[in-house]
Design a protein around this nucleic acid. Structure first.
Ligand SMILES: [Mn+2]
Ligand SMILES: [Mn+2]
Ligand SMILES: [Mn+2]
Ligand SMILES: [Mn+2]
Lengths: 220, 220
DNA sequence: AAATATTTTTAGACTTGTCTAAAAATAAAT
DNA sequence: ATTTATTTTTAGACAAGTCTAAAAATATTT
C-alpha cells in the first residue's frame, strides 16, 4: 500500500476538480493557480505523483489521474463532504463556516472512520452546499441542474447547489433567504446587465449576473 | 497570535505529560524517548519552542512549559479527549481504537470547533479511558483514584481509568469484562509474583502485577 | 518562416523536521 | 581529583514542499 501526504492529496483533488469542469489533461499553470503555488512547485509535485503512479504526466502536455489517483481524489472529496455534513448537521455550524475545517478533516487517516461517519450521518447523498457525496465504492450521483442564468423568464426552480463556496456569497444568500430547497421563480432578466429579477417565497429581489451564475437549480 | 505546527504541539503535549508524572524540568532524553525521536531532534525542537516563548529551556538543565505553552498543551489534550469521546459515543468505536484518530484530530484548527464539539457531547468530564477533560478555561478535575496494586485484600473499588492505553491491554480488559465503572474486589495478593486475585461481577480472576498496576480505582 | 509571447521546466535556495556521528558538558566512579 | 560513563549539544546531511530567476519548449503573430 502507498501512503500519501496531505499536500499530495490536495494536488490530486485539485487535478480531479479541474478536469471535472474542463475535461482533458490538466495544465501545470491551471494546477498551480488552483493550489495557490508557483508553476515550479506544481511541476515538482507532478513528478512526485507520477513517480507514485497516481497521475499520468507528460512534460508540457499536462496531467491526468490514474485509476488509483482517481480513487484517492474521490475518497478525499467523500471525506471532505461527509465532514461538512457533520459540522452543519451535528455541530450546528453555518454552511459558510465548514469548508476550512473539512479541508483539514479530510486528511485524517485510518480504517473505517469514513464509513462509520457515513453511517452515523445516515448516508447523506449531498453536502451542505448541494454537492454530491460519492459512496464508499466511489460512485457518483448525477442530478440534472442548471444555473439560474440559463432559465427563461417565467420558469421556476428549486435551489440544489452553489458554485461559489465563499462566505461572502453564502452569507449574501442567507440574507436573501436562499438556501438549498428554496423555490425561485425567474420573473425577468434585465437586458442591460443580465441581472435576474426573481421571486422567493413571495418577495421580489434582483440578483446580479455573477450571483445568478453561481446558483444551481432543479427545474420544476 | 502565534501559530504552531502539529510537531510543535506534539512536543508541548509530551513535555506536559512527562512533567505531570514527574514534576520538574523535562530532560532532553526523556522527551526524545517519549517522542520516538533522537535527542538531537528534541534539542532542535526545544530551541524552536523556546524561540516562540512556549517553553523555558536551559541548555543541559531541561525544559518547562511557559504559561502559553501550558495553555496550548492543555488545549491539545482537551481536543484529543473530546474527539475520543466523539469516536466512542457517536461513531461506536471501541476504546482501544480511538487514540490514533484523536492524535490527528487534536490538531484540527479553527474557531469554536472544540467548544461546539464539547457542547454536542454534553460537556463530558472524562474520556473513554477515564482521563479527565479540562474545560474551556483549562481547568482540571481531580479525582481520588488508586492503583489496584495499592489495595489490601478485602477492599473493593470501581474502575475509573487505565494507565496503559494500548490495544492489547484494553482488549484484555474487554475479555475480562473490565470497563470503566465496573466493581472489582481484591480477594488476595499472591506473595510470589504480586498478582491479584479479584472478583468481578461474581467471577474470580487472577491479574498480573503489570495489569494491576495499570488499573485505577475509586475506593468504595 | 521568423520573431515574439506564453507556458513549462530546470536550477538553486530556503524552512521544517528528521537523522547519524562527533564534540562538549555534566554526572558517577574510582 | 582524575578518570570513566552518561547526557546533551553541535555539525552536517537529507526529504518534502515551497520560492524566485533563468532556460527551454510550445504557441501565437506578423
Ligand atoms: Mn486538503
Ligand atoms: Mn461542500
Ligand atoms: Mn498529535
Ligand atoms: Mn484517552
Amino acid at each position: 500500500m502507498l501512503l500519501t501526504t496531505s499536500a499530495e492529496e490536495n494536488y490530486l483533488k485539485a487535478i480531479f476538480k479541474i478536469s471535472e469542469k474542463d475535461p482533458g489533461p490538466v495544465l501545470t499553470n491551471a494546477l498551480a493557480t488552483a493550489m495557490g503555488t508557483s508553476a515550479a512547485s506544481a511541476t515538482d509535485m507532478l513528478k512526485r505523483l507520477s513517480e507514485k503512479q497516481l497521475v499520468a504526466y507528460e512534460k508540457y502536455r499536462g496531467v491526468t489521474l490514474t485509476p488509483e489517483g482517481n480513487r484517492l481524489a474521490t475518497s478525499l472529496i467523500r471525506k471532505h463532504r461527509l465532514w461538512e455534513v457533520f459540522l452543519v448537521e451535528k455541530l450546528g455550524f453555518a454552511w459558510d463556516e465548514v469548508h476550512d475545517f473539512a479541508e483539514q478533516l479530510e486528511h485524517v487517516q485510518g480504517d473505517n472512520l469514513t464509513d462509520r461517519l457515513d453511517e452515523y450521518l445516515n448516508h447523506p447523498r449531498f453536502d451542505p452546499h448541494g454537492d454530491p457525496i460519492p459512496d464508499a465504492q466511489g460512485r457518483w450521483i448525477r442530478r440534472p441542474q442548471v444555473r439560474l442564468t440559463t432559465l427563461s423568464p417565467g420558469q421556476k426552480g428549486i435551489v440544489t447547489g452553489v458554485d461559489d463556496h465563499t462566505s461572502p456569497f453564502l452569507q449574501y444568500l442567507d440574507e436573501l433567504g436562499i438556501a438549498l430547497g428554496v423555490a425561485i421563480e425567474l420573473l425577468d432578466r434585465t437586458a442591460y446587465d443580465q441581472s435576474s429579477k426573481v421571486r422567493i417565497s413571495g418577495k421580489e429581489y434582483t440578483l446580479s449576473e455573477k450571483a445568478s451564475q453561481n446558483l444551481f437549480l432543479r427545474l420544476e
